[in-house]
Design a protein around this nucleic acid. Structure first.
Lengths: 249, 249
DNA sequence: TAGGAGAATTAGACGACACTAAACTCCCTG
DNA sequence: CAGGGAGTTTAGTGTCGTCTAATTCTCCTA
């Protein structure tokens, strides 16, 4: 009965990941929470900055002490480098794990829209739950079915299976100068209302346009769609969400 | 800050499902463990029998006391009717919940084989994890993409969205009389080795055949495939896994 | 440069789920 | 019909991940 009991404990969901050896080789099955925290730290620590406890807490809708404790745990797992009272940064392993999760999320979002008929404003929450349960094998099959896509429905780059991710330098529609010829590359919101509005007015990744005008004092930006010549006025708040790739002028 | 803290607790994964009102209407989000236990009770309590603690423990690879405690919890949730020292049966709500999970599982299995190119011996584990994370909406979309299928890759019936499930009376290939003309309807194992072997010899749901011979003393059964006339010998152990629908004689 | 405001951490708890060891029940068999 | 063994439950722990309250740290500003 003892051998059996032992098998049990290992078969059941890993409570203590049973790390034999260094972290890298056969992935130790991170918990849903750990993956969420890693994603949060990834998104909050742009280029060398540290993610603060408070920002992580806000992003995950969790109390600050929970973050403190989790960061300590992530540090002992080697996924995060922590400076007490300052914040945390991902280690190489942590970054890889975060990118795996982000890849899963973005492939799922695209798959749900392309193959299962979901609108782009509804896929975020689905993907948020599925990303923790789906295996990389399924994700890779989905990616193949999607012809190895580079971007998710919102234009966010999809990390490759080996953990590299494109980083383009984009400008917000709100700040690009009048006269610029741009391509809308990325829409940085998950709010369904905004997404529906944007899609309803043709403002989706891939759109080419020219900035025809911008009113001062936080006023709207007017864009002219490139092939068609159609004109669209975009308010400041939305313009800030639209990240563009630019042929200058 | 208090209103915020309250919102938090509700947004985060439900620890205590916060039941306002009766169980039926907007599903109270059962945990992965609860769903697993409900499925186990469902599968173990065929027609009116009760599922015993020990059998549930064996099926879920969990210690018996864990089952005891969980059954008590399920009973307070109204999902299970419990007789101490005897076992448990599903209530109507418990049965509905179990069938929802089983529907998700079986639709996922079929989707993975049909649309993502997985072999039928590999989909069980994937589906086992996904079934707890995927929404009914996604499942329904998958079902539509599959043309509202009635059976999963192993021939198990897929419960409908409203919670009804087909129950056919099947006979095992091991016990059907020689001379029977049968249709292989269901393969009752998830063991990859056995599944691969069976598929490799054409023994998959939908096959029509006649029982040509059976050796005594637990010997093999010989079947003749119906359109082609090809002959296949099947040992006792495997024959017991093959459930058939029969035109008698 | 001494407060203080704000952020982070520690302290103490809880709920969900799992485990082992020990006690208890039920029922079968001698 | 009285053990005794199989099966079940109780008792006591542990881990993960969360919370609130209280404490500690940092850094800006008066």
């Amino acid at each position: 009965m003892n051998a059996q009991a032992t098998r049990r404990r290992q078969t059941r969901r890993s409570q203590t990941p049973a790390r034999r050896g260094p972290v890298r080789p056969s992935l130790p099955e991170l918990s849903r929470s750990v993956e969420d925290y890693l994603k949060a730290v990834y998104h909050l620590s742009d280029q060398g900055a540290v993610a603060t406890t408070k920002d992580i807490a806000l992003r995950l809708l969790v109390a600050a002490p929970s973050v403190s404790i989790m960061l300590k745990r992530l540090a002992t797992l080697g996924l995060v480098k922590r400076v007490p009272y300052q914040g945390a940064q991902l280690t190489r392993e942590g970054r890889q794990a975060a990118l795996r999760t982000i890849r899963r999320h973005r492939v799922l979002e695209l798959y749900l829209t392309r193959h299962l008929g979901f609108a782009w404003d509804t896929v975020h929450d689905e993907a948020e739950r599925l990303e923790h349960a789906v295996s990389d094998l399924v994700i890779d099959r989905m990616a193949v079915a999607l012809d190895n896509p580079r971007y998710d429905p919102h234009g966010d780059p999809i990390p490759s299976a080996d953990g590299t991710i494109e980083s383009a330098s984009l400008v917000s529609l709100a700040t690009a100068p009048v006269g610029s010829e741009l391509e809308l590359r990325q829409v940085t919101t998950q709010d369904p209302e905004r997404l529906r509005f944007l899609a309803g007015h043709g403002l989706m990744p891939g759109l080419h346009f020219t900035i025809a005008d911008r009113q001062p004092f936080g006023g709207p930006t007017t864009v002219r769609f490139r092939p068609t010549g159609a004109v669209q006025v975009v308010g400041m708040e939305l313009a800030q969400l639209l990240m563009c790739l630019g042929g200058t002028k």
